[in-house]
Computed example of a mutant assay.
Amino acid sequence: MQPVVETPPVAVPATPDGRRSRWTEHRRARREELVAAAVEAVRLAGPDFAVDDVARSAGVSKTVIYRYFADKDELVDAVLGRISDAILLPRLMGELLVERADDRASLRAVIAAFVSLIEDEPELYRFAYAQAGRSGRADLVAATEREIAEALGARMTERLAAAGRETQAAMTWAYGVVGMVQLASHWWSAARTVPAAELVDQLTELAHGGLGLLLPPR
C-alpha cells in the first residue's frame, strides 16, 4: 500500500492592508508636524523647553504628544535630528561642497555659515549644545563635527594626493580645524567680544594660516 503523501498548503500572498498603510503614513506625518512644533517651542522657550511648550505650539494637549513619543528624551532626539537634517548640515555641507578659487575662500565660507547659524538661530544652537554628551542619546554637536571634519578631510586628502604628498595627516588637520572653529565660536556666542564678521575673519586667518603651511599650493 502506497503511503499517502500530503501536499503542503500553498502560501497565499497577504493582501496589503490599505488602511494600515494609510494609518502608518498618517502617524508619520503627524509625528513630523509635532517635531516642527517642538522646534518652534525651542525657538521661543529656549533649550529648557517643556512638553507643555510643544503642546501649545502644536495646539494640542500633552496627551497627544505622548501618543507619538515615549518620553521627552525621544522628542529631544527627534528635534536634534530635524535641526541637523533641515538646518545645520544643509548650510555647512552646502558651503563646503562649493568649488571656490582658493582654500581661504572655502574656509571662510564654511566658518561664516557656522557663525551665521549662531546668529540666526541662537536658541536652536544653545539647545543642540546643551544636549551634547547625553549618555546613550543622540549628540548633534559630535555628529555634526564628525560629518564636517570627514568632508573637509576628504577634500584635503584629494589635494595632497594630487600633489603627490602623503595623506595620513589630512583627517588630523580637518578635525583640528573643525574643533577650533566649534570651540571658539561657542565661547564667542556668550562673550560677544567682537562683531560676527570680525570673528569670521579671525578664525579664517588662524585656520588658513596654519593650513597654508601644510597644504600644497594650488
Rank of each mutant, 00 (worst) to 15 (best):
177 V>F: 01
17 D>C: 14
48 D>H: 10
19 R>K: 13
119 E>Q: 08
189 S>V: 08
30 R>E: 14
185 S>P: 15
112 A>V: 00
19 R>H: 15
14 A>C: 12
151 A>T: 03
73 D>N: 11
135 S>M: 05
168 Q>R: 15
155 R>F: 02
15 T>G: 07
73 D>Q: 14
163 A>G: 15
4 V>S: 05
127 F>K: 06
28 R>Q: 10
174 A>C: 06
207 A>Y: 06
105 A>L: 12
31 R>A: 09
144 T>E: 00
153 G>Y: 04
65 I>A: 02
200 V>S: 13
99 E>D: 12
90 P>D: 09
172 T>H: 06
40 E>F: 02
121 E>D: 04
48 D>F: 02
55 A>F: 08
4 V>K: 10
59 G>K: 07
159 R>T: 14
119 E>A: 09
116 S>Y: 00
11 A>H: 11
52 D>M: 14
186 H>M: 08
77 D>F: 02
193 T>A: 13
71 D>H: 08
83 I>C: 03
209 G>F: 00
80 L>D: 02
87 I>W: 02
218 R>M: 10
131 Q>R: 13
19 R>N: 14
160 L>G: 04
58 A>F: 10
218 R>C: 08
136 G>N: 07
135 S>N: 08
88 L>M: 12
13 P>F: 14
139 D>T: 04
9 P>M: 09
53 D>E: 08
95 E>R: 09
21 S>E: 15
12 V>R: 15
50 A>D: 15
141 V>A: 09
150 E>A: 01
63 T>C: 07
137 R>T: 03
47 P>D: 07
39 V>G: 03
84 S>L: 02
197 A>Y: 03
58 A>Q: 13
16 P>S: 08
159 R>F: 10
32 E>T: 11
202 Q>P: 00
13 P>H: 14
117 L>E: 05
84 S>D: 04
